[in-house]
Design a protein around this nucleic acid. Structure first.
Length: 683
DNA sequence: CAGTGAGCGAGCTTCCGCTTGACTT
């Protein structure tokens, strides 16, 4: 009777069901062994020798396998079909070595947990893939060496700093650099002119000015209130006729089913769930047998599941909602391992409304997963997009109206991904024909400002990390926790804002360890690991090359004194620390004593602040973020925009206005709403 | 949350990725 080992107990239960009583299926509960979290677990001077240890938590699970092997003589390693899964099989083999004498060991893999996939896999056993394991060894050793060498450097050189790593430091850098972009951003004003028009049959619709003075308008062509007034006059003083009506068919395909990152993004957008909260609700659903595995970067679906989804769609909506052939999805991300299929309901017929859930989060998440999965196998939505141009006789003025009508809803019947932007919600345009004259109800100018990039949310950051190939489905949520725990960044209204400490760490790393916080470092490493797993390169060669450069960078920082480090960071962060003053004076000169040069300093507790160089004669200090009072820092800039936008609304709001025009005003002046959404400081 | 500034050096911290634990009332 063979012993089969998989990674998770819920999976073991399912597979046991498929294989029957002739097999004992057990779970390894993860990696089983790891490098002890202390110095010397990897020795670069001794061929990168690694010291492994069975974690206390894993002992009982290893013991259970040893017990089972006493009566059986065949061990089948069925861990996940990716690099880490192969590593787990190898760890098991090593950890169980003394129990495996005179026993046979084989390795099998399956991508989907279906009866067919599992029984098929059992027919093609192989041995543990050594090159793939070696790619893991390189990955594991490198992460250890980066983390356990760099962190102590930070402790010594940057008071208050706590940790650094291949993933967390790049993730932090993303947050910090986004904040610098926001601070450097200067809003630019522009105006749009919208008219509410009426057809000869009395139906209202909206159109926007696109040509003025015979010239096509660009975004910033109407830059001031005065110019907008002139544009409004140009429109009101002319009669408008329909110059053209163009209708074009368009179609929209459904989204791919969920993987971990997209599930986290949608759970955040639709329910405001954090990454951790989302994963814990998903774990419950998985343990209850309701959904497939929730830590995955695969978006393909088992053929059985595709057929079940098509049946369910036919049953509920009729055959017109089922495309001729099943839709196939594949993750195009470079480092995708696709060890598991997508996140989907295990039973398509188990519709959300038929189930009862212990908690709201689980109900919400299951509903989302079921709908997204079903939609992913439905027909495309078909629409008709209409563009109507209205022109003055002299061709000086053209207004354009856009309309969209859904002809066939297709997958939209079940699932519509909410939009992040307010977007222009386009409706149906009234019947109208070329040559017809329209009547003007209202012509309204609206002031707008270009928007700075928004701060990251957990969800958008996970999306960015995934694009860069940084982190894995099992770590997205915990990386964010680490960054917040270290007080490198904080979460405010779901937005990530860097703390001063986080800025200092990023400044330090980009100065002294640039290569290791570059956005493509992990992607390049993955390419090298691919070579290792293909058997084209020795893993120790990868580590040797890495260590040669990395240890040199470490050595260069050895003699640095804290003062020098701070000076360098002071220069690096200067644009943020010393924003231009409105009176034009040198932002680096202390305004209290009038002569001292301002410097970045750190206190005993590790906090950073700005102090006057004339200390102790001049005792001026201030925090490093927020800038000086009255300086043209980010806060001041935002305050001015808010004021301007408020007066624009007041202006536009004077006089009677149709409901359509009022709607138009809301859409065209998104400043305040967009600011709140992006978590920018409110005044 | 306000206040914060040297250098010495005890003893502490730290990585990424895989997986679920769970004392009490």
């Amino acid at each position: 009777m063979p012993v089969v080992v998989v990674e998770s107990p819920a999976k073991a239960k399912t597979i046991n069901k498929y294989l029957g009583p002739d097999y004992t299926v057990l779970a390894s509960y993860g990696h089983v062994r790891d490098l002890p979290a202390k110095d010397g677990s990897v020795d670069p001077d001794d061929g990168f020798g690694m010291k492994w240890e069975v974690a206390a938590e894993s002992r009982k699970h290893v013991k259970a396998i040893v017990e089972a092997l006493k009566s059986d003589d065949h061990l089948i390693l069925a861990t996940d079909p990716d690099r880490e899964g192969e590593a787990i099989s190898w760890h098991l083999q090593e950890a169980l070595a003394s129990s495996l004498k005179k026993k046979t060991v084989s390795r099998v893999t399956f991508n989907a947990i279906t009866k067919q996939a599992v029984t098929e896999a059992m027919k093609t056993p192989r041995q543990v893939d050594k090159p793939l394991v070696e790619a893991y060894l390189a990955r594991r050793a490198l992460d250890y060496l980066v983390g356990f060498t760099l962190s102590p450097v930070l402790w010594r050189k940057l008071p208050g700093a706590k940790s650094a790593g291949r993933v967390q430091s790049v993730c932090l850098r993303l947050i910090v650099e986004r904040e610098l972009e926001i601070e450097a951003f200067r809003a630019r004003e522009y105006w749009t002119v919208t008219a509410v028009l009426k057809t000869p049959r009395g139906q209202e619709f909206e159109a926007r000015l696109t040509v003025l003075g015979g010239k096509k308008l660009d975004k910033f062509d109407i830059a001031t209130a005065a110019a907008a007034e002139l544009a409004v006059r140009a429109v009101t003083s002319r009669d408008l006729k329909v110059a053209s009506v163009e209708a074009k068919p368009a179609s929209r395909n459904p989204y791919a089913p969920f993987m971990t990152s997209t599930l986290q993004q949608e759970a955040s957008r639709k329910f405001g769930m954090g990454a951790k909260q989302c994963m814990s609700a998903a774990q419950r659903l998985y343990e209850a047998g309701l959904i497939t595995y929730m830590r995955t970067d695969g978006i393909d679906m088992a053929p059985e599941a595709v057929m079940a989804a098509r049946d369910e769609i036919t049953r509920r909506f009729g055959p017109t909602y089922v495309p001729e052939s099943p839709r196939m999805y594949k993750n195009k991300a470079k480092n995708a391992q696709e060890a598991h299929e997508c996140i989907r309901p295990t039973d398509m017929a188990a519709a959300p409304e038929k189930l009862r859930f212990a908690e709201k989060d689980q109900a919400n998440l299951y509903d989302l997963i079921w709908k997204r999965t079903i939609a992913s196998q439905m027909s495309a939505a078909r629409m008709e997009r209409t563009v109507v141009d209205l022109s003055s006789a002299d061709g000086q003025v053209v207004l354009r109206a856009n309309g969209q009508v859904v002809l066939f809803d297709g997958f939209l019947k079940v699932y519509d991904e909410g939009r992040d932007d307010d977007g222009d919600e386009e409706g149906r345009l009234p019947q109208i024909m070329t040559g017809e004259a329209v009547e003007k109800q209202a012509v309204t100018p609206a002031q707008s400002f270009t928007q700075p990039p928004p701060r990251y949310t957990e969800a958008t950051l996970v999306k960015r990390m995934e694009e860069l190939g940084i982190g894995r489905p099992s770590t997205y949520a915990s990386v964010l926790t680490t960054i917040v725990e270290r007080e490198y960044a904080r979460k405010d209204k779901n937005r990530l804002i860097p703390e001063d400490k986080g800025r200092l760490v990023t400044a330090f790393l980009t100065n002294y360890f640039r290569r290791y916080v570059e956005y493509d470092f992990t992607a390049d490493l993955e390419t090298e690991l691919d070579d290792v797993s293909a058997g084209d390169r020795d893993y120790k060669d990868v580590l040797t090359r890495f260590w040669r450069d990395f240890s040199a960078a470490i050595a260069e920082t050895a003699d640095l004194r804290i003062g020098e480090v701070l000076e360098k960071i002071d220069d690096f962060l200067a644009p943020h620390l010393y924003p231009l003053r409105e009176d034009g004076s040198d932002p680096r000169i202390c305004q209290t004593c009038g002569t001292g040069r301002l410097h970045l300093k750190t206190s005993r507790s590790g906090g950073a602040f700005i102090g006057c160089g004339n200390y102790p004669e001049c005792r001026y200090t201030r925090p490093i973020s927020g800038g000086e009072d009255g300086a043209a820092g980010a806060t001041g800039c935002w305050a001015r925009i808010r004021m301007a936008s408020r007066s624009a609304c007041a202006r536009a709001g004077s006089g009677p206005m149709s409901s359509a025009a009022r709607r138009a005003r809301q859409i065209r002046s998104p400043t305040a709403r967009a600011c709140r959404r992006a978590g920018h400081p409110t005044v």
